[in-house]
Nucleic acid binder design. Sequence first.
RNA 1: GGGCGCAUAGCUCAGUCGGUAGAGCAACUGACUUUUAAUCAGUAGGUCCCAGGUUCGAUCCCUGGUGCGCUCACCA
Length: 504
Amino acid sequence: MTDLAAPERLAKIAAMRAAGVDPYPARGIDAAPIAELAAGAGTAEAPGPKIGSQVAVAGRVGVLRDFGKLVFAPLADRSGKIQIGLQRDKLAAWWEHRKWLDAGDHLGVRGELGFTKKGELTVWATEVVILSKTVAPPPEKWHGLADQELRYRRRYVDLWANEGVAAVFAKRSRVLSLVRRFLEARGFLEVETPTLHPIAGGATARPFVTHHNALDADLYLRIAPELYLKRLIVGGLERVFEVSRNFRNEGISVRHNPEFTMLELYQAQADYRHMMELTETLFEHLARELSGGTVVEFRGKTYDLKAPFARLRYADLFQRHVGCDLHDRDAVRAKAREKGLEVPSADDDAAYWRLMNDVFESAVEHELGGPVFITDYPTPICPLAKQNPADPRFAERFEVYVGGMELANAFSELNDPAEQERRFVEQVASQDPEAPGEVDVDYVQALEYGMPPAGGLGIGIDRLCMVLTNQDSIRDVLLFPTLRQHKTRATAAETVADAGAAAG
RNA sequence: GGGCGCAUAGCUCAGUCGGUAGAGCAACUGACUUUUAAUCAGUAGGUCCCAGGUUCGAUCCCUGGUGCGCUCACCA
């Protein structure tokens, strides 16, 4: 046990055992979802159990309001909450055991559905069973679990102690479900590709490294599923998607978690224009399904996710917000210095384009409300995208922004093996710590077998859920966000460890 | 990683212009058959995050550390 366990509750467990009552019985009880009772109550529209009928409910009990010969308490399950009423007269033999009950216990209650004098729907108990005795006291009843860190560390408490938390995750689940149905209806096949990659490709990010003992080889946790999914397009699957947990060894912020979920999809015979249409259609669909309308509120502002979204060209935005052409290297460097960005002394192309994009991001991104497509990125910052046939300086790529946050990234996929190889070699040579360490030769070979023209799209599911559920931090849409390691004091574990040390 | 802020009872917080501390809730005891954060009476509960420094004296001031939050950078 840990120091969370309250002595008075442990004493109750001992008392129950002494009385021959199991505080952790093996079987639950067959109970109705509480919402059915609460909403139904035998009316014509909602044919739940009638007032006066016998019902059974099971759930976590809240604060006990004890009147001596009468106890009221709320009982909550996943579906809702109802009041239970325990009366001495109806629980004669059991009545003395009411002292075993504590806030937070799991109870099964059988009784008659009725009302109190104040008109509160109540299950008047004729039988009460402790289904699981809680030794850790629940959070304070007024404030709930307020400590941010504890909310994340003890999400299992946060979920029932704080209103609305479970609903956010139910919505998230629904987003994934809707996305799957949406894509399946359009002929996409859900696939699963490796999480362990010999080369960390498909994005620029620092990977996590791990080691396979039998192969005696280092492997990387994937930073993106992209290159595998495109191999499947080569393989003729034509329309594939994956809900991919990606891992990036980077900082943590309100928008970043080291592991995050991305939807990636690829569609043969499509290009980035199709991806735009698909994106805005999907976003509108999700908004409508989740909230009934297309307008969502996020961080105190509203955004209309009704398609079509505005389309703004990268070069135009650059000109407008930075004030010079993105190819004018001297002017861009001057702007970078103005903004206090670190201007690299090296004069190579890779460094210039990184700088140019930094300038763009610092000048443009937070100016964007959205939803908006930023389109036609400069080719040098798009190693996996196809060039625009009319102007090869730009790639057929777009990103979607809502509330200053990048939600999606898509392009017409580069399928020329020679050009792809050239860009890989360039990346590897760039010395960028976030670039892959070696050329993915197998991927180039895949392209040599021929990939049809295809559009690809990646959507940050966590961020999308932030927008759709109006949560400011990515941590609030992740059940268990990554936190610094933290040793919980486990008194029993210490005892075991001490015993082991003593024995050894 | 940089900057800013916070750390006091189980929880949420107040407080001490430097003299080792308080409220509400929770717990415990008692009363109460109609509460909705029940009420009433009482009891108990503190390494004031840790270490060092200044001081007659530090929870308070200073330095360092730890943890957390916010923010910047990077990205999705």
